[in-house]
Every structure is written in C-alpha cells, then in structure tokens.
Design a binder for these strands. Structure first.
Lengths: 250, 250
DNA sequence: TTCCACCCGATTTTCGATATTTTGGAACCA
DNA sequence: TGGTTCCAAAATATCGAAAATCGGGTGGAA
C-alpha cells in the first residue's frame, strides 16, 4: 500500500535528520492514501481496520488522524471516530478560490525575493515535469503528481514566509486530492505543460503581475476540469476500502 | 487554571451538539494556555507534568499536542517531545503579513456577501468590545481578548468560505499569542476602539477598499506595538511553568 | 400502527504498563 | 586539558486491555 515514490519527499519544511516516529509514518501514509484517493471521500476510518491495514498500534493512528483533521483531509466527530472528508463541488471551488489568492501572493513574494538558485531550481523542476509529461501517460500518474506538486512548491519556495508555505501546503493537499479524485473519470491531460512553461517564463522575467495572472488561470482551468470530472458518472475503478471486513450477518 | 471565560465559545465553526472527548478538552485548554502565555514560548511540555497539571491521561494529551503542532502553536520534534513554539520578531512579522492578506481578502468577501443579520452581529460585537474598553482596564484582559477576537471573527464570518475561516483561525491564534506575550511588558492600550469603529463603519457602508485598508493599518499598528513589547525587557510577572517539579505552588 | 425505553454488539476513547530513545555526567584515554 | 565513550536516570513513544459510548433493533404500551 501507499507506494512510496522516490521523489515524494514532498514538501517537508526544514529537512533535518530527525528520527521519525510511528505516528509520523502513519500520518504520511494516511495522507498519501487520502490524497491519492486510495481512501475514498466519506470512507469511515475504523481504527481496528487501519490497525490491521497498516500494522500499527492505535495510539500512532489516532495521533495521525488528529493531525489530518486539522489539515481538513479528515473529519473527526465527537465519539464517532474519523472519516475521510466528504468531497463536493462547493468545497473544491472554495479551496480553489483560496488557493488562488494564497499561492498568488506567495508567488509574488517569491518573484521579489528569489535568487539565482531559486531560478535554477525552478527551471529544473519544470524540466522534470515536462519530461514525465512527454513520456508515459497514465503509467506515471503518481510521478506526474509528485513533480507537479514539486514545481508549484518551488514556485513559492522563495517567498521567505514559513507561515505562507504552511498554508500553501494545506491548500495543495486538499486541491490535489480533488484532482486525483476527478481524474478517475476523466480523459488524461490537455497540453498542461504549456501553461507551466508560461508561468516559468514570467517568473524568470520577474513579471509578477503576469505570473500571478497565469497561475490564477491555471488554477481556474484545473478547477473547471475537476468539477466536470466530479459531476461525471464515477467510473469506479476499484472498490475503495468500503469497510471490507466481513463475517457477521446482514 | 485555564479560566474559562463565558464568552470564549471562541471561533468554533459549526456548533453542533457534539459530545466532547478528553482529547478535545486537552486541546482547548492547552490552546488557551499557550495563547494566553500562561505557557511561555519555548517551554518544554513534559507529558508527565501535563498529566499532573491537567489531570488527564497521556493519550489525550499527545493527541492534543499533535493537533496544536499542526496549528503552529507547538513544535513537535522526533523523539524529543513537544515544546511551545518559540517566539521571535521575525516570526510575528511573517504572521502579521500573512494575516493582513488573508483576513483582508476574507473581509472583502464578507462585505460582498454579508446580509442584514451579519451587519447586526457586527454592530453588536463592536458594541461589546467598546463596553469592555470603556470599563475596566487590565482587570478584564481576558475578556477584552475574547471580545476583540469575536469582533474580528464576525468581520470575516460572512465570507462564505469555510476554508478561509479555517486559515483565519490559525492565523489569529498565532497573532493573539504574540499580543498577549508582548502585553506583559507594555502599557495598556491606546485608543484602539477608534480604529474598530472606523472599520465597522466602512464595512456597513460596503466600502470594501476602505475597510480592507483600515484593517491592514490596524494589523500593522498592532504589530508595531507587539514588536516593541517583544524587544523591551521582559517584566517577568511569573515563573511561567518552567517544569515546576515539586508540589503545588501558586 | 406509532412511539419510546431499553438492551446488546460494535466502536471509540482512555488508561497504565512496557519498550525505546535521549540526556547528562562520570570515567577514561590521548 | 579537551574530547570520547559509556552508563544510569528520565522522558518519550507504543501497545493492548479496560471503560465509555454509540447505533440499531426489540418489544411493550398507547
């Protein structure tokens, strides 16, 4: 489960050699499984099942779920446990609007403060993204997601604001979940790379207004596709973890 | 401990009758104690001490601390436990900048979408704030904080964006902690209410540009005071929970 | 029939006991 | 003296059992 892409170091703020804990592992795996829709929206997250599935004790799992609920990927209800946050058109449109604002602001700052190595990282990230887009299609959906995320993260990474980066991560996580979700019933990608190239060029030219506008368009465009995919009949490609346990009556 | 103001229903999104858990209680109490600086920045949060102080088991406490760490009030380090997030001038300036942007955006939306009862709530919130400002001074610092927070929350509450409200809460929490922190070594408040009245009036007049500008000024002004208070020699008013160890000393 | 109180199995939540890791300092070399 | 290594004390992280709680179904009364 939770296939661990090499590149999915994901957006971990300041990477120090920090001995990890099981709770952290649980957090990362659950997060990945929810974002990738391996755990479908609305799925009841029974502790007992998770214990079996991930081979972890209850405490680390509860800790992880608590953290995820603060990130709006999981909903925790009083004495009724946890479930994967429900998906809705209204919700994704809300998220998109906020992301546009926050990521736009961060991009503006990044363009103001970014130095040479930021530019270099940006070029590199966009190149890796282009490579995976030119090559395989669906084969590498996970890889595409990872590189796409990395590109967007690099875009804002020079904004000099840990706080903003934190918010951006929360928003990306939610947005990416919807993308993956709607991708299940959608033809692959349009010529996406084009817009990324344009954003890159605007950023390198330090044209903040243009870059932010392009980024906004990009997000709006993606949101439109996502909404379309959500409304479309869900091609169920898998029985995603609908409390598989069995045995008893009913 | 953790004096529970009547008004501190705080910003709880959709208030439903939901049976609470000990973990939730721990979260609220720790959050309140950190924001109010009863737990000073940098304080090591030893689980055994907390267990004693709050009379709770380890699991609820760990859960609460995990959640708080996602809210940037607590820092969790690998196998080295938790501590209250350190305070710094750089950090508060970062927070203030982001809050200005996010809350400004939310206010703009609120002004667009707010209806009659929003206006009414706004007037009411500002009135309660004015009352507490006119009356006692330091006596009611907690009360002032609660009503101030409520006023700001009401300002943005009509923005129709749960996502934005979530971010606003995270930012307010952090900002408020700094205010309380620096208030320890600062003369009380300037004529703050004036600016609130101006914001209120701009909002009622549906003058979004003016309201957002005023709000921005308000935040900048507050930040200036906070930074001044932070740099000033800390009048230590209490040995704030430096791993007290021995029996109950008040 | 409809409503309501009660009960049972399933699930969540909490607790205290272990296992694991870090920390601080004493002993030990160059 | 300065710098390692190693050990014991202390703290964290994890586990599984016990307690609390929920949801649904049953049966009795109006």
């Amino acid at each position: 489960m939770a296939l661990d892409l090499d590149e999915s170091k994901m957006v971990s703020p300041s990477a120090e050699a920090e001995s990890t804990t099981l709770a952290n592992e649980a957090f990362e795996r659950l997060r990945a499984d929810i974002i990738s829709s391996r755990l479908a929206p609305g799925t009841k997250l029974r502790l007992h099942n998770l214990r079996e599935a991930y081979g972890l004790g209850l405490s680390p799992l509860r800790e992880a779920l608590s953290r995820l609920s603060e990130n709006r990927l999981v909903v925790a209800t009083g004495q009724r446990g946890f479930r994967v946050r429900e998906a809705s058109v209204q919700d994704i449109m809300d998220i998109a609007m906020v992301r546009k604002e926050v990521e736009g602001f961060a991009l503006r700052l990044s363009i103001r403060y970014g130095d040479d190595s930021w530019e270099a990282e940006l070029v590199a990230a966009r190149h890796k993204l282009a490579l995976v887009e030119r090559a395989g299609r669906e084969v590498a959906e996970d890889l595409w997601e990872a590189r796409h995320r990395e590109f967007h993260h690099t875009l804002v990474s020079a904004c000099q604001s840990p706080c903003l980066l934190h918010l951006q991560r929360i928003l990306s996580d939610q947005f990416d979940r919807y993308r993956r979700l709607s991708a299940q019933s959608r033809i692959p990608n349009a010529p996406r790379s084009l817009i990324h190239k344009e954003i890159l060029e605007a950023a390198l030219a330090r044209d903040a207004d243009r870059a932010v506008t392009l980024l906004g368009d990009h997000i709006s465009e993606a949101t439109k596709l996502i909404v379309a995919g959500l409304s479309a009949p869900q091609e169920s490609r898998k029985k995603t973890a609908r409390t598989p346990k069995t045995g008893s009556t009913r």
